[in-house]
Design a protein around this nucleic acid. Structure first.
Lengths: 194, 194
DNA sequence: GCATATGTACCGTCCGGACGGTACAGTCAA
DNA sequence: TTGACTGTACCGTCCGGACGGTACATATGC
């Protein structure tokens, strides 16, 4: 087929294109909107073509999650690496992660993508979240091992997760002042003596 | 009808029975498991009978959410009322609520119920979460108005929400010691001078 | 005091449509 | 030619919802 030939400069791997399409659909039309047909159409592939790459819907969602978990892990590691070394490094990274990338209010791309994909996975089969669990467990372990007192570390961990959840479900919104106050409080927890 | 009269202990309002059944299904078999037929069967009612009370699946889920939001609001208010008056009262209630100090009748069942129902609603139509948003927004407003510094109040709010999310999605587990440390940290935030 | 009518609560069946998945024929690069 | 890959036609199933019918209680007319 011609269309396959005159694709843009970086030849987008078909698998990747399907995964991207599936994510876009879940974000735009919700979990219901994700069907094999719609994903194939969005990716510019036939349904049969999609099924060639992902043998079932479950495999498709699993693929989305594996990729997302890898992205999250990498992103977090990068954030840690960018923090000065020393006690509380991971905790500071966590705060920077939660407050930094979330700048664009309702359109923060990685955040919404994460939420959408996780929700889709959880809906289909909670066990599909396992790769994500592995990542979060590792993050927690790192956080508890970097010298910050456990209480403070856990407060930071759960607080940023709560911030995330509130955003995903739109449970309540924070003003800039509130976000700043929260951030200051979390950072103050880092200063506490061990 | 006589039967309706001499059933003193369980007044089995059909509507309530259907709502209970639907919640049980969502908890046990996930969002997928909730169909009009399964809910009707579980409630001991025919599908037609169910549709008599809830004109559509959306109405059924909406009914679950309305009831749950009312329950949550009442439960939280009761928790606040049980705290000594004074500055930080609402924040203390929040902590007590989150850490299960409240005698929530059968174990931590309401927690799972909340999660299951909210997920079902979010899956069907995010707008259905509105009653829940109203409750959480009110709680946040109360929390910010009871004298606790904003940063501490928000840290407590987001942290307990994060605790909740981690539980719902099974992202990571906390040991008893970790829970105690986290709680101590949150309580220490309350002592900070305004 | 009886028959007819009306309203409420509920039941059982059916249908259109959508979805996941399969079968298979076609295409194109190597 | 071959085999990786695509596209299409189709199947079985399931679900939401509509619909017509049943049982019974109360009301109404006579």
């Amino acid at each position: 087929m011609r269309a396959a030939m005159d694709a843009p400069a970086p030849p987008p791997d078909v698998r990747t294109r399907i995964l991207d399409a599936a994510e876009r659909i879940v974000q735009a039309r919700g979990v219901n909107g994700l069907t094999l047909e719609s994903a194939a159409r969005e990716a510019g592939v036939s349904k049969g073509g999609l099924l060639y790459h992902f043998a079932s819907k479950e495999a498709l969602i699993g693929g989305m999650l594996d990729r997302l978990a890898a992205f999250m892990a990498e992103s977090f590691d990068g954030c840690v690496a960018r923090q000065p070394e020393g006690r509380g490094r991971v905790a500071r990274a966590m705060i920077a992660w939660a407050f930094g990338e979330e700048e664009t209010s309702p359109g923060s791309e990685p955040l919404d993508r994460t939420a959408a994909v996780c929700l889709a996975a959880f809906h289909h089969d909670p066990a599909l979240l396992d790769p994500m669990r592995a990542v979060t467990s590792r993050i927690k372990a790192q956080l508890l091992a970097d010298g910050t007192p456990a209480g403070a570390a856990l407060a930071i961990l759960t607080s940023t997760d709560g911030l995330f959840m509130a955003h995903v479900f739109g449970l309540y919104h924070h003003t800039e002042a509130e976000r700043a106050a929260l951030r200051a409080t979390l950072e103050a927890l880092l200063e506490a003596a061990p």
